[in-house]
């Protein structure tokens, strides 16, 4: 009897406890720590500066992952000076129009999340055209420091972009010490694979390839193929060492990911970037539209 009575009682108390907590969160979301005060946890004991130190060992994508854990982490991970640093590295001379009602450093974090496809997580440099963050001016303005019409940049591209396609963009590479895939730009990928060369697949060891094979499989151009060690096979015909060709292609395009990406046009990646930017703009509009009070309730600050 006693047990059957205590069960509804317990349910009652738990629902009672929940209610004020939810109410509390609605009113003061900015103080994300509040919901933890009941428990004595490790994360509460660590002061913010120690979290900053821990975060300094993490890549932006790790931080983005951490921000999904809960409000406390969201607050910690989006309010880092790192975001401002990355922003000015990626968009020099272009001050960011901060989002209203949220911490300034979070604005940088959100803007960068929208542009993450174009930003190298190692050197924080940006590849590809700038997508203007104001819809109304996209068609009219010209980028002051690239001198290109924003929309046209993708087709024209730089010398490198024309030949490299998507390989010129930051591509995900597995970094052993980061223990995850990290988006690296061409330069960083070259450096990385120089230090940590990829193994030559068994199927290619000791093989000789014809020029056409190299061109189709590894996307090397004639200039590079000419420099490979050649073996004669019949009058005026040559074959090349497949391993050498692979190594050259890997250096040129920044690893196997690069080689695989050569034929794709960067436009596809840029389109994804643009669609992300649109989401960002929508969010900014809603932020601008609603007053401060509504915002605090509707935003994770």
């Amino acid at each position: 009897m006693g047990a059957s009575l205590s069960l509804p009682n317990r349910l009652k108390t738990s629902s009672k406890q929940k209610k004020p907590r939810g109410h509390f969160q609605e009113t003061s979301l900015v103080i994300a720590h509040s919901s933890f005060q009941e428990k004595n946890l490790v994360i509460d004991k660590l002061p913010p500066e120690l979290w900053d130190l821990i975060f300094s060992y993490l890549y932006p994508s790790h931080l983005a992952k951490l921000s999904q854990v809960n409000r406390h982490f969201y607050h910690l991970a989006t309010n880092l000076c790192l975001w401002e640093t990355i922003y000015y590295q990626a968009f020099p001379y272009k001050p960011l129009q901060l989002l209203p009602h949220i911490p300034p450093l979070s604005s940088y974090a959100l803007f960068l999340a929208a542009n993450s496809l174009q930003i190298c997580e190692q050197c924080f440099c940006r590849t590809g055209t700038i997508i203007d963050d104001t819809t109304t001016t996209t068609t009219t303005t010209t980028d002051s420091y690239t001198g290109q019409e924003p929309g046209q940049g993708q087709e024209q591209g730089s010398y490198e972009q024309q030949f490299l396609g998507t390989a010129s963009m930051p591509l995900p590479v597995f970094l052993p010490w980061a223990k995850s895939m990290i988006r690296l730009c061409l330069v960083c990928r070259r450096k990385h694979f120089y230090a940590f060369p990829e193994p030559i697949p068994v199927s290619m060891t000791g093989k000789r390839w014809r020029k056409k094979q190299i061109r189709t499989r590894l996307h090397l151009r004639n200039e590079e193929i000419e420099q490979l060690k050649r073996y004669g096979c019949g009058p005026g015909r040559f074959s090349f060492c497949a391993e050498d060709a692979l190594t050259t292609a890997r250096i040129f395009y920044g690893g196997d990911v690069g080689v695989a990406a050569v034929n794709q046009s960067p436009t596809e990646l840029m389109d994804r970037s643009i669609s992300r930017m649109n989401v960002y703009q929508k969010r900014r509009e809603t932020l601008n539209a609603c007053g401060l009070h509504d915002n605090i309730a509707s935003l994770v600050a």
């Binding site: 969160q25 919901s35 933890f36 946890l41 994360i43 932006p60 994508s61 931080l63 983005a64 992952k65 921000s67 999904q68 854990v69 809960n70 409000r71 406390h72 969201y74 974090a109 959100l110 960068l112 999340a113 929208a114 993450s116 496809l117 992300r276 989401v279 969010r283 509707s298 935003l299 994770v300």
Partner: peptide, 20 residues
């Protein structure tokens, strides 16, 4: 710790997963 995001906030952070 618990996931204390509200559903609307979940939607918001959904697109911040883009880095990952």
């Amino acid at each position: 710790i618990d996931d204390d995001f509200t559903p609307e906030e979940q939607d918001k952070i959904e697109w911040e997963k883009q880095w990952t």
